[in-house]
Design a protein around this nucleic acid. Structure first.
Lengths: 185, 185
DNA sequence: ACCTGAACACCGTTCAAGT
DNA sequence: ACCTGAACACCGTTCAAGT
């Protein structure tokens, strides 16, 4: 559906500036940072921001898509390790807290027919495959819903976003994973 | 610190109307519903809303304080049951999803020096006592941080708020609790 | 003592006018 | 083809004026 004609030189430059300004603003104020401020910081009219990124989610997606797709790819890389799930979930959460409010945006987008939604679904799907793999291997209780596992990781990301120390995040993930490795009731 | 002089008749009536309108709006649109709309629905000037409830949290608190304190009290009632924790956490989550956005408000308020924060801390404390009780009884792994347990329940509330069916909420709580009952690594 | 609503600041979104 | 910014709608918060 995307039109891949190369952008005009000024458009391309504006796009880059907007992304840099958005990344800066998102780091500072979370993904709900003022779009006006971002356009101003990029030295661009607010209309130009909307032309390049019609919705806030489009802007978020442009900044995190590459990262998230890399995380999805890691799921297959880790598949044969005995600690596959803990390694991968930690990686997932680490990237889901890049900006304050990102975890909420990810959960809201999942299963919704937007570009960000499609990206989140790819990550979700890769994680679910990893869970099923471990279940077939017998290292994970088989009655757990693979989707629940990813959702729980996202909930932990939401809870711990903005914390500089990874300690609580790690403890909570450990708790969740221990539940998954426990034998079913 | 509170001044307990009875309110003037019209003030008391306005307060009741505001609470009813806020409850209605919060149910419909979540705790971030427009304050203007609430004042209008209550047939009251916006200034009157601010006089009675200087912050949004004060309004939220007035609506949920009784419920949350009842939940806190339940922790002691349940203390001696073998399924104390699952029963109580389910109760906690059920009340934390009364309005969309409430879980977020609760987590944000916890440990902060506001009236809502104090209320959340009471619930948090009651839950943590329950966890420690089970740990002493040996029914819960002793290396789990009691605070983490409550936080995880709040995260699950956040994740499942707005869902009419309690199924996913129950599954996720079950997962978390199984992790807590599992033997430490 | 309490209520009112205008005033201000801020933000998101659209679109007519420009190049 | 792309950019600009004024215009509109909406919301939160304060405060001078009223009873």
């Amino acid at each position: 559906v995307t039109d891949d004609r190369p952008l005009r030189a000024d458009a391309r430059r504006n796009r880059e500036r907007l992304l840099a300004a958005a990344d800066h603003a998102f780091r500072r104020h979370g993904v709900n940072a003022s779009l006006d401020d971002i356009a101003r910081a990029a030295g661009v009219g607010i209309g130009t921001l909307y032309r390049h990124f019609p919705t806030r989610d489009d802007l978020i997606l442009a900044l995190v898509a590459a990262d998230l797709d890399r995380v999805a790819a890691l799921a297959d890389e880790y598949a044969d390790r005995t600690d596959a799930l803990e390694r991968w979930l930690d990686e997932l959460v680490r990237h889901t807290i890049a900006y304050r409010g990102l975890a909420e945006a990810v959960v809201a987008a999942t299963d919704s027919p937007t570009a960000l939604g499609a990206c989140c679904d790819r990550v979700h799907g890769a994680g679910a495959r990893l869970v099923r793999r471990e279940q077939q291997r017998g290292t994970l209780r088989s009655d757990a819903d693979p989707d629940d596992v990813i959702d729980l990781a996202n909930a932990i990301a939401w809870l711990t976003e903005g914390e500089r120390s990874p300690r609580r995040r790690r403890r909570l993930l450990r708790l969740a994973i221990d539940g998954l490795r426990a034998t079913a009731a």
